Computed example of a mutant assay.
Amino acid sequence: MISQRTKLSIWLLGINLFISTFTFGGGYVVVPMIRKYFVTENKRFSEDELVDMAAIAQSSPGAIAINLSTLAGFRVAGRLGAVISCIAAVIPSLVLLVLISKFYVSFAANPLISAVLKGMQAGVAALIVDFVVDMCSMMIKERSFLLTFIIPTAFLANFLFEINVVIILAGCCFICIARVWLNKRWQK
């Protein structure tokens, strides 16, 4: 005979796999699905608890859908429920990415798909350039020599000296944190 805890674990696995597999459009699409299956149909927790969990999931780092699934699993079955729900929320995306990566060479060899991918590269490049221009204009408006100097320095560090981007980002974060700390100290 299957225990109640095992039944609950199987239900959590199945429902989170279902929700993660059939919700497209980002994390906010998961909220109505969790409401339907956890609150309305199975009365696992209240609407107010769902709103609280959605707020926590949104303000926590990571994907909202995974955070909310994990919180719902924790609310229903404790730590085991959180682990099961988190894994079930990740599996469909992971499988899809593995399949795409397996057949990427076949896709890339197809002239139509290759053209689409090239177009996407151009679009992404345009978005990155737009973002960099916006960032640079904001830094120049602040009239900070340090922030303005960081932009070309970071580019040269990566492009010419091939320094890892993570190291560059960590260095920039450290410089900015030190700048804020020193500014606060000088204002006292």
Rank of each mutant, 00 (worst) to 15 (best):
M1N: 13
M1C: 11
I2V: 12
S3N: 10
T6H: 07
K7R: 15
L8P: 00
S9Y: 07
I10Q: 11
W11M: 04
W11Q: 04
L12M: 06
L13D: 00
I19L: 11
I19S: 05
F24H: 06
G25T: 08
G25Y: 12
V30T: 07
K36E: 15
K36C: 06
N42L: 01
S46Q: 09
L50H: 00
L50W: 00
V51H: 02
A55L: 10
A55V: 08
A55M: 13
A55G: 15
A57I: 03
S59G: 09
S59Q: 12
G62N: 11
A63K: 10
I64L: 15
I64H: 07
S69L: 06
G73R: 10
R75M: 13
V76N: 01
L80W: 08
V83Y: 08
C86R: 07
I87H: 00
V90S: 04
S93V: 11
S93I: 06
L97Y: 11
L99Q: 08
S101I: 12
S101W: 12
K102R: 10
F103W: 14
S106D: 15
A108L: 00
A109V: 01
P111C: 08
I113G: 01
I113D: 02
S114W: 05
S114H: 14
S114T: 03
A115G: 12
A115D: 07
A115L: 09
A115N: 10
V116A: 06
K118G: 05
G119L: 13
M120W: 03
Q121N: 03
A122G: 04
A122I: 08
V124W: 02
V124C: 02
A125Q: 01
A126F: 01
L127F: 07
L127C: 14
I128R: 09
V133E: 01
D134C: 09
S137F: 08
I140M: 13
R143Q: 10
L146V: 14
L146Q: 05
L146A: 09
T148C: 11
T148A: 10
I150W: 00
I150E: 07
I151M: 13
T153K: 00
A154D: 01
A154Y: 05
F155W: 14
L156E: 09
A157F: 04
N158H: 15
I163D: 03
N164A: 15
V166T: 08
I175G: 03
A178M: 13
L182F: 12
K184F: 09
K188P: 00
